[in-house]
């Protein structure tokens, strides 16, 4: 391969290798950051800490469940 790229093959290969490494690093950073945020969010919700909108949705669902008409015998 390096014979194909001429006398300066090392510079060309190094450029592409560093570019690949930096792009892979960015992708890994974004994915790892997302996993960390989701884990912390799940931990807060496990402790019962919810967003107001989520809490309101939960209460509305509970209210409609209790208000459901009694099945007629």
């Amino acid at each position: 391969m390096t014979g194909l790229l001429g006398p300066h093959a090392g510079f060309i290969l190094a450029s592409y290798a560093i570019t690949l490494a930096v792009i892979a690093g960015l992708i890994l950073w974004v994915r790892a950051d997302h996993r960390a945020q989701r884990a912390r969010l799940a931990e807060l919700e496990a402790r019962g800490v919810r967003r107001r909108s989520a809490a309101a949705r939960g209460e509305a669902a509970a209210a409609t469940a209790t208000a459901a008409p009694e099945p007629r015998p």
């Binding site: 974004v30 997302h34 969010l41 807060l44 800490v49 919810r50």
Partner: peptide
């Protein structure tokens, strides 16, 4: 692509911060 996903992470980070403050 990376910018949209990084913005998603940042929104989650700010939600966690406000939830922590609320708690």
């Amino acid at each position: 692509t990376l910018h949209l996903y990084a913005m998603r992470n940042e929104i989650l980070r700010r939600r966690i911060r406000s939830l922590g403050l609320a708690a």
